[in-house]
């Protein structure tokens, strides 16, 4: 029996122009979905079926996109959770975090909680589905992979390391069917009060590179900062834990 795969898509934002686009990770989720299920893939969006970006996703060769119609102020999670409960899905693919909206990266976690499914975070590839198990490759830093076996059904958030999305073709995108269904009307009460402002660049930890050779410099440039001197404080009192953090901030000259 073919497995039912659902990819969740959202409206992305181009990092340079700020313009709407198909989100990078979400479109990778569609790409992986197409690999697993072909055109049987169910691609789901909570929002407006008039959204032009949906056509960019559809241009990847999707005959239709399921749209859970809802207001912008409504909580997308409610729509999606309801939909997933009504469909008997085996695998749900999402991005790690959205490029617009709250962008908290919580969607897959909350869904997994509500559905009671396991979540596999930062997936690079789903190699094989056999019976009720899937072989999943997780993306680790610096190109490393870890293979895990996961029981269906599960939710996977797709890492940037997954196969890049194929080109979107204008014609099929234009002709794809937008299959509108009623989404939720529950207002996202937390979000209504928020105001959006452009993000400020976060200060980066300075790396003092003492490399002598080109190979060392290369390693230093590509390595993610790993602050090897960290320690785990589990049993100390909150007072002591706070003091440790405070000391560190002074040491790092974040506060003087």
């Amino acid at each position: 029996m073919p497995h039912k795969v659902i990819s969740l898509i959202s409206v992305g934002r181009h990092p340079q122009s700020g313009r709407s686009r198909r989100a990078d990770q979400d479109s990778r989720a569609v790409e992986l979905g197409l690999k697993l299920a072909g055109t049987d893939l169910d691609v789901v969006h909570a929002g407006s079926s008039q959204e032009p970006v949906l056509r960019q996703y559809a241009g990847m060769g999707l005959p239709k996109v399921t749209v859970l119609e809802q207001d912008e102020s409504a909580d997308a999670l409610v729509s999606i959770a309801d939909y997933l409960k009504s469909e008997k899905a085996d695998i749900v693919l999402t991005g790690v975090r959205a490029e617009s909206g709250e962008s908290s990266g919580m969607t897959p976690y909350i869904l997994s909680e509500q559905l009671g499914w396991p979540i596999v975070a930062r997936v690079a590839d789903i190699v094989e589905i056999k019976g009720d198990e899937a072989q999943v490759l997780l993306a680790l830093p610096r190109g490393q992979r870890r293979q895990v076996t996961v029981k269906l059904p599960f939710i996977a958030s797709i890492d940037n390391a997954a196969e890049a999305a194929r080109q979107s073709a204008f014609g099929p995108g234009l002709r794809a069917k937008m299959d509108s269904q009623n989404g939720s009307t529950v207002e996202d009460s937390v979000r209504v009060d928020w105001s959006e402002a452009p993000a400020k660049a976060r200060p980066k930890r300075l790396k003092i590179v003492k490399a002598k050779t080109a190979a060392d410099r290369f390693k230093a440039a590509t390595a993610k900062p790993q602050g090897g001197s960290g320690k785990v404080m589990k049993n100390e009192s909150a007072q002591e834990q706070a003091q440790a953090i405070f000391d560190l901030l002074i040491e790092e000259k974040v506060i003087r």
């Binding site: 181009h14 122009s17 686009r21 194929r166 080109q167 979107s168 073709a169 099929p172």
Partner: peptide, 23 residues
């Protein structure tokens, strides 16, 4: 090939996507 199949070779797809998103 481009508008129906989405098969612009090599950097084609990337360049087109850039043009669409950033002009």
């Amino acid at each position: 090939l481009t508008m129906e199949k989405g098969e612009t070779p090599n950097k084609g797809s990337e360049v087109l996507e850039n043009i669409i998103a950033t002009d």
